[in-house]
């Protein structure tokens, strides 16, 4: 999933300072799963905005709605008859959501309520970790099923570097050295010979480096 974290409430309040009719829009996709932008978090943010505005003596109207997804135009369309009642929208979806909303409703101000962090998963309750860098050319099968692009601090294709330290990365003891894991797993699987092959430089054309990406599947285009 796309993992996001809440922006500090102070930052959100500064963004919407001067607006008194605010719609908080959640998303039932990834951000619901990572507990940052579902119906529950929409209610919390809306309540917090009401309290903070009231404290400042402002009379506000804060609406709450949680869409099926904010990355599909058909769900964004559900806001059609609602947006005119508001001056600003705070979207609790990943970076995609607020952009889709502001593209669809150019007349309204849209603010991001979360910081989109990475593509990853929950490794335990309340803890998420990055797994994919979206490079556009998956190579994890060469590396024991682990991605050195996303998970090695230096994205080494021929690691581990000399900074590998008791299974941890030189950058921080909080970060696992993924190359340590790759080497140990591949050796345990008897695949040392594969690791001895020099992996050539990667083409980053399919990654963000090739410019903003778009994907067309002809068989699906109406």
């Amino acid at each position: 999933m796309i993992v996001a974290e809440a922006k500090p409430i102070k930052e959100i309040l500064e963004m919407i300072d001067g607006f008194n009719k605010i719609l908080v829009v959640g998303c039932k996709g990834c951000v619901t799963v990572c507990n940052v932008g579902g119906a529950k978090e929409v209610a919390i943010l809306a309540s917090a905005i009401r309290i903070a505005k009231k404290k400042k003596g402002k009379d506000v109207e804060v609406g709450e709605i949680t869409l099926e997804r904010q990355c599909d135009p058909e769900y964004i369309e559900e806001l059609r008859n609602i947006v005119q009642n508001y001056e600003a929208i705070v979207s609790l979806a990943c970076g995609v959501g607020p952009q889709f909303i502001s593209e669809r409703y150019p007349e309204i101000r849209v603010f991001p309520g979360v910081n989109t962090r990475f593509m990853g998963g929950a490794i335990e309750h309340g803890v998420w970790a990055e797994r994919c860098a979206g490079c556009g050319q998956c190579v994890i099968h060469y590396f024991g099923g682990m991605c050195p692009i996303a998970r090695c601090s230096k994205s080494l294709m021929n690691g581990p570097c000399g900074g590998s330290n008791h299974g941890k990365c030189e950058v921080s003891p909080e970060i696992d050295c993924i190359w340590d894991k790759i080497v140990r797993k591949m050796m345990a699987q008897g695949r040392l010979d594969e690791l001895l092959k020099i992996r050539p430089p990667k083409s980053w054309l399919t990654a963000r480096d090739g410019g903003p990406r778009k994907m067309v599947r002809e068989e699906l285009v109406k």
Binding site: N158, P160, S164, N165, D180, V183, M187, L195, L196, I198
Partner: peptide, 14 residues
């Protein structure tokens, strides 16, 4: 001397 130790000579070979 860096870990994983057993792989270091192979990385040198690479």
């Amino acid at each position: 001397f860096a870990e994983p130790l057993e792989f270091r000579v192979y990385r040198l070979a690479k």
